[in-house]
């Protein structure tokens, strides 16, 4: 299978950006962005879909770390 050429890459990235924007605006509810999700999957190779989905999780996690900082996993805590 040949690698996507520059036009195909751009089409995939644009579809990804539109989906991500929709998810940002809809609080990450995929149901509201079905159309963009389908478009994204149609324009990007399956591996890239997986890669970009993981990448978005990572970027969101990174952003959370940078804005809110790291909070150790909660659990029952006793005051000493």
């Amino acid at each position: 299978m040949a690698a996507p050429n520059s036009a195909e890459r751009k089409a995939c990235w644009d579809a990804r950006d539109q989906l991500w924007q929709c998810l940002d605006e809809n609080n990450d509810r995929l149901e509201s962005c079905q159309k963009f999700q389908a478009d994204f999957e149609a324009r990007c190779p399956a591996q890239w879909v997986k890669y970009f989905t993981k990448r978005r999780d990572f970027l969101k996690y990174k952003e959370k770390m940078q804005t809110e900082g790291f909070t150790p996993a909660g659990g029952p805590r006793e005051n000493s």
Binding site: M1, P45, A46, Q47, K50, Y51
Partner: peptide, 8 residues
Amino acid sequence: KDEDGDYI
């Protein structure tokens, strides 16, 4: 590799 043999 996935079903299409594609990988990263």
